[in-house]
């Protein structure tokens, strides 16, 4: 397990524990948890809070019929559950394997600039996007802001921006007021999981020309 330095806030972890986070964001938290013991520890505590709150509710009696129906179902269940985890990507976080069933190199990366490639893993009806970003060693992303929040988890390598250095397992949340320029460290390429709630706004001079194109990519 890697020691990570950047974590989700406690409020975000509490939403995760409660099951109240949108699944795209929950995916990022879950990915971070696979790297971070400290947050895993906290999560178990938060789950206990949820469990205690559940016990404080006024119980709502179940019908005898429901009990019979549930007991009857037991006989028709398979004795052993089939495990369906793919073996291809054992180095990937477990929660990402539902999207990736081949080696990471064969994912169909699309180049978006000299330094960056991306591959979209999933997108929902509200414009939320789950993708992997790959920055080549020493490469930089265009300076950008966001219309919505951007969640990032470092999967391989490391990068830095105006606020710090991020390594494997680190979790970042940038909102629309953050303007940042991520740069990968020189020794190796950097792969990140990125979830964006809305289109990213590029703020560099040339990149501004790209904005309408990017917005179009989000139109459903």
């Amino acid at each position: 397990m890697t020691v990570t330095n950047h974590h989700p806030t406690d409020e975000l972890l509490a939403l995760y524990s409660a099951g109240s986070l949108p699944l795209s964001q929950a995916l990022c938290v879950s990915t971070h948890l696979e790297y971070c013991d400290a947050c895993g520890h906290k999560l178990r505590y938060l789950d206990r809070i949820g469990s205690t709150l559940m016990q404080k509710l006024k119980p709502s009696p179940a019908s005898a019929e429901l009990k019979v129906r549930t007991l009857e179902q037991l006989d028709s269940l398979p004795e052993k559950q089939v495990e369906t985890t793919s073996e291809v990507n054992s180095s990937l976080p477990r929660c990402l394997r539902q999207f990736i069933n081949c080696s990471c190199d064969n994912l169909g990366w699309k180049r978006v600039s000299a330094d960056i490639s991306r591959v979209e893993l999933w997108r929902d009806n509200n414009g939320a996007k789950v993708e992997l970003l790959k920055i080549r060693p020493g490469g930089a992303a265009a300076t950008h802001t966001h219309q919505g929040d951007e969640y990032t988890v470092v999967l391989e390598g490391s990068f830095s921006d105006e606020k710090g250095l991020y390594q494997r397992g680190d979790f970042l949340l940038r909102d629309q007021n953050d303007r940042h320029t991520p740069v990968a460290t020189r020794d190796c390429e950097c792969i990140c999981l990125a979830v964006t709630e809305g289109p990213v706004q590029l703020t560099g001079f040339f990149s501004r020309i790209l904005n309408p194109l990017i917005r179009r990519a989000y139109a459903v």
Binding site: L23, S24, A26, L27, C95, R97, D124
Partner: peptide, 18 residues
Amino acid sequence: HANTINPTDIFSQIEDDS
């Protein structure tokens, strides 16, 4: 109609309680 992520993998590590 919503094309949503399968939550099983997201929360399974907690369910199985490492």
